[in-house]
Design a binder for these strands. Structure first.
Length: 432
RNA sequence: UCCGCGGUAGCUCAAUGGUGGAGCAUCCGGCUGUUAACCGGAGGGUUGUAGGUUCGAGUCCUACCCGCGGAGCCA
């Protein structure tokens, strides 16, 4: 009889096994007592009958508090009445590591402030546990997708000398004798350099935005995966994005069935996430807003409600491309035939989850890029290395960035991105 | 930064300007199949902070602190 994990119980029916874990909850009906034990891989109901275990073991029930840590032995049994379908008929509790003090998170309702203050404990709860399992599977799917297609992972730096998007939203820090350093907002510029060296790359890491945003879609620290491909144009990058989203969603549907059930996610809308994804222009998106009597000034970027209205017209994520160049970043290439439009694409998730992907074909002409840097009042010296990419064998190239937390929130059907990352960082929260 | 809402028992919430309560949690007791178990009993309060109005303030007024929801900006 060896130590096993709860996730493996089904392979040990009829055997006596030993588990290590924590007490999740307990219930008693007098001479029959139920211990719900979790071990990180699942939760199992352990049954003790007064007539079935030694008296001293039966009495341990009274001393065990929620989250007490223990080893427990018993015989595995398939039983319809057990949550999860399998239960343990207890024979012994050979070790109690610790009787936990009063555990603050009871299996009842709590407010978000209370839970967020105890995030380090909250992640033990089954719902949070399921979300972080799905997050893990999404991240693995992301890496499998690119690794399986010949992309090279190139890590971009987190400390950077200058902004790559707006300058007002940077976290800054002192950097020895070299003045200020900034936490990265995107690995993209470095990704472009890497694409010129490796052809197909992706970078994957945390990014930081000091935006004073306080909505269900914002964190100050979030994870982004950013593929960049040399010789790709806007259409190629949209092809890649839709294949990528299909892969992620279908993988999670296939492999996280149990977690999605815990989260009570209606998966019918996720089943639709298959290519081709609808592609509409910015102008067509504006037309949708007009038809829905949404007040919108042509030329602006879409707000949260605008995105929701647009996405409600489709049964799967929608790609919106050819945005007005004025609302997009300096490095995006413009449509040669309509120079006021950027070769940019945003992918809007269904069900009001908003923008999950932003991408574009990059400006590859040296003179044009210099002019854009000037137009945006950016310091050219800081971008000399980036301009080198247009001096030494410049080629068309394109890429996009996918926000991991918004993607997790969408796939899990969550109200807020703060539950999609183990320890969220928001404008008014830095702890735990 | 702006707009709106809130802060009462460990938790989630009640309480007309007039004796601060309930459910859960905790403790004690009961129950041989419980499913956020259930049933009975007990203990538990500087009503966010500081002022003010009033015979009397959880309740009304002022300021501040903290949190929540949203906007702008963004993934």
């Amino acid at each position: 009889m060896g130590r096993i994990y709860i996730s493996d119980l089904e392979n040990h029916v009829g055997e006596e096994v030993q588990l290590h874990g924590w007490l999740y909850n307990k219930r008693s009906s007098g001479k029959i007592r139920f211990l719900l034990v979790r071990d990180g891989t699942g939760i199992v109901q352990c049954v003790m009958l007064k007539t079935g275990v030694p008296e001293n073991i039966f009495a341990l029930y009274d001393t065990l508090t929620q989250e007490s840590s223990l080893s427990i032995k018993g015989k595995v049994r398939k039983d319809e009445r057990a949550p999860g379908g399998y239960e343990l008929e207890v024979t012994d509790i050979p070790k109690i590591y610790q009787i936990a003090q009063d555990y603050p998170i009871t299996p009842k309702e709590h407010g978000i402030e209370f839970l967020a203050d105890r995030r380090h404990l909250w992640i033990r709860s089954s719902r949070q546990h399921a979300i972080l399992k799905v997050r893990h599977r999404i991240i693995k799917a992301i890496r499998d997708f690119f690794d399986g297609r010949g992309f090279t992972l190139i890590d971009s730096p987190i400390l950077t000398p200058a902004a790559c998007e707006g300058t007002t939203t940077l976290f800054e820090t002192e950097y020895f004798d070299l003045g200020k350093a900034y936490l990265t907002q995107s690995g993209q510029l470095y990704g472009e350099a890497a694409a010129m060296a490796f052809g197909k790359i992706y970078c994957f890491g945390p990014t930081f935005r000091a935006e004073k945003s306080k909505t269900r879609r914002h964190l100050t620290e979030f994870w982004m995966v950013e593929p960049e491909v040399a010789f790709n144009d806007l259409n190629d990058t949209m092809d890649l994005a839709e294949e990528f989203l299909e892969y992620i969603v279908q993988t999670v549907l296939r492999e996280c069935e149990r977690e999605l059930k815990v989260l009570e996610r209606d998966t019918t809308k996720l089943q639709n996430v298959k290519k081709p994804l609808p592609r509409i222009t910015y102008d067509e998106a504006v037309e949708i807003l007009r038809k829905n009597n949404i007040p919108f000034e042509y030329g602006n970027d879409f707000g949260g409600t605008d995105e929701t209205v647009i996405s409600e017209h489709f049964d799967r994520p929608v790609m919106v491309h050819h945005y007005p160049a004025a609302v997009k970043a300096f490095y995006m290439k413009r449509d040669p035939e309509k120079p006021h439009l950027a070769l940019a694409v945003d992918v809007l998730a269904p069900e009001g989850y908003g923008e999950i992907i932003g991408g574009s074909q990059r400006e590859d002409d040296y003179d044009t890029l210099v002019a854009r840097i000037k137009e945006h009042n950016l310091p050219q010296e800081a971008f000399e290395w980036y301009l080198d990419l247009r001096r030494f064998g410049s080629v068309p190239h394109a890429g996009f960035g996918l926000g991991v937390e918004r993607t997790v929130a969408w796939i899990c059907g969550l109200e807020h991105v703060r539950e999609t990352i183990p320890f969220p960082r928001m404008i008014y929260r830095l702890t735990p």
